[in-house]
Design a protein around this nucleic acid. Structure first.
Lengths: 217, 217
DNA sequence: ATAAATTTTTAGACAAAGCTAAAAATTAAA
DNA sequence: TTTAATTTTTAGCTTTGTCTAAAAATTTAT
């Protein structure tokens, strides 16, 4: 499988987890910053290889084979991210682009040895689940901080947006995976929140809250 | 730089360390298992980019820029090999193909962090030197076991042939980097050697001896 | 229900990196 | 030194993955 094929599969996989329906050509093109015509070409090719179900004008979905391949790519990406943060001491906002390259390294033995070396982590540095060698994913029941109501509290277990800006904002506010967050009050006008992290109180916009996953406690 | 360009540079570098003269198109083609015409095409391209000195029919050599790039690729290859053997517990005959992929990952920060994580090794698992971040190589004065005369002894510091067959042969004979090898006698007919490794004596062919580097003691 | 807007596909081109076959240059041999 | 053998380059074709522009299908809106 080529890098390009792998990138398409991964993108279709990610879009599927968001929308859980047939994925449109345009949606893929937009996410990959390429042209719809290029996407069509690749979909035909992936379809030939039985990696996707594709019918002209009808959108696309992953076959079992395609889903498994996609999960293995995601597995590699996230394991390498853990390696970079836990072993090489990278910050969580620096690892995406490097993992984007490392995810294409082909060696089952390598990735399983790496998994073992990292002590079989179940989540990457952003809180996203790591499929195991069989492709199984352990789902943590999590919700967006923006979904909590006043007086509810949760532990930060992940982020939706993984951009450097957002991650660095969190670092600045000393919000990390594992931090306990309590919703003190919620402004009905703009849905901004007053929250308590550790023993500090701060105001955050709804946009921030809508990109932070918490597990209710 | 593309993977292909990097592979050509690396090959030219390796051939240069063996022959230290202008490298022929055919030599490159043979080493890379490709056609001379493909090599010519690439040499033109690398020449355009000022990575090699190339004059039609005259062979090729690396420019300073090309030499530095080649060394950085070799550096990455060898550091990843150390990682695979030391950290992930691969055998020394299993790492080449994976390192061949990993050497193309682009991130200076990654490779320098990896270097640090591995505690700045100076040699890979086969005894080949690892260029430092500036491209400097610490040369160990070593020679082939086949060059030793009767009664001389040396410590195994590297291998010339890195094929699985050879490395597994060495494993079987319990010869590893650091093993002390003493030449007991040398057969003038076929140049085979009787050697002592640890407290075991064994017979080895000249071909074996000519692929083992030792440092005289 | 039909026209307008949008989405998707097709057709045709291009760059990268490879190949084959033929031509040109170099080297070796008679 | 001229011919023969070898090496290297050129020319032209192929595949992969991209693009633009135009055509076709679908969806939305009047």
């Amino acid at each position: 499988m080529t890098f390009s094929e792998e990138n398409y599969l991964k993108t279709i996989y990610h879009l599927t987890t968001l929308l859980d329906s047939e994925i449109s050509t345009n949606a893929i093109a937009e996410k990959m910053e390429t042209k719809a015509s290029s996407v069509t070409d690749m979909l035909k090719k992936l379809s030939e290889k039985n990696l996707v179900n594709y019918k002209k004008y009808q959108g696309v979905s992953l076959t079992d084979k395609g889903l498994h391949s996609a999960k293995m790519i995601v597995r590699k990406h996230r394991l390498w991210e853990v390696f970079l943060v836990d072993k090489l001491d990278f910050a969580w906002d620096e690892v995406h682009d490097i993992a984007e390259q490392l995810e294409h390294i082909k060696s089952e033995k390598l990735i399983n040895k790496l998994d073992e070396f990292l002590n079989f982590p179940t989540e990457d540095p952003h809180g996203d689940p790591i499929p195991n060698a069989e492709g199984m994913i352990v789902k943590v029941e999590k919700q967006l901080l923006s979904e909590l109501t006043e007086k509810q509290a949760g532990v930060c277990v992940g982020v939706k947006d993984t951009s450097s800006e957002f991650l660095q904002y969190l670092d600045k506010q000393e919000i990390a995976l594992g931090s306990k967050i309590e919703v003190m009050s919620k402004e009905s006008f703009d849905l901004s929140l007053k929250i308590k992290v550790g023993n500090k109180e701060l105001m955050i916009s709804n946009k921030i809250a809508a990109n932070l996953f918490v597990k209710k406690v």
